[in-house]
Amino acid sequence: MICRIRPIAIDVTVDEHSLNVVLKDGGKLRVSLERLSKLWVATPEQRCDSRVSASGKGLRWDHLAEDISIGELMCDVERRHRDERLTSCIPVDFPQNPTPALLSGTQPKLAGRMIDGRFVVGLTAEQRWVRWDICEYLTQQLVAKTLKDAAKYPKNSREVTLRRMRHAIERKNWTARVETDWLMERLRALLGW
């Protein structure tokens, strides 16, 4: 994991789109300014007025009163890479957030959580990947079960057989409704029905 490395910065530059850090081991970090709110709204002159700490473990912008830890920056980059990798495994048609949490009141509010210093509403990339993995595994298991049910009740149409499978899944409460919808379409595709 990148987070366990003790990175030491030797140079920092900021262009109009990104923060660029050269590390002592020869590595380079490039982070979008959109992820760094104070730098994002700063003027180009303020962005360029930066320095690397004597230890190389931090970056400082005196006029912005902004300090950035290289270790935390590395952890954030590693977390984003992991999230991108997990997200790339999930089919684009899989539901984004099957059960958003809403709080009651005069105005509806979404419930959020603080995870690794970030405010998250809905599923994280890892949680969404786990939900997809469960649905995909269940779908794979249902192929044989569906074929067996179709053979046992040959007078039933394919639609009736699929409805029976859906009803069985819904009774178990393993998946949210939108996940069950996706699962049934995936099952239909795997069966070629």
Rank of each mutant, 00 (worst) to 15 (best):
D11Q: 06
L36K: 00
Y137Q: 13
E185V: 08
R30D: 02
A42T: 02
R79I: 06
A9G: 07
I115F: 14
K109V: 10
T180D: 10
W174T: 11
R128Q: 09
L147A: 03
V120C: 06
A176S: 15
T87A: 12
T43A: 10
I70P: 02
R166L: 05
V92E: 14
T175L: 15
I134H: 05
D83S: 11
P7C: 09
A101M: 06
P7G: 06
A101T: 13
L110K: 07
L123H: 07
I5P: 00
S157D: 09
V41P: 00
A144G: 09
D11F: 03
G117N: 04
I169S: 01
I90Q: 05
D67E: 15
Q140G: 12
T175A: 09
L39Q: 05
R80T: 12
P98M: 03
D83K: 00
S104C: 02
D116W: 09
R6A: 07
D133Q: 12
M114S: 15
R47V: 03
M74A: 13
G192T: 05
R177C: 11
F119D: 03
I70R: 03
K172N: 13
I8M: 06
D116T: 00
T139C: 10
S157A: 05
H63Q: 14
S88M: 04
S32P: 06
L29N: 04
Q107P: 02
L123S: 08
E136W: 14
V41A: 02
R177T: 15
Y153M: 04
K152M: 08
F119P: 00
T124D: 05
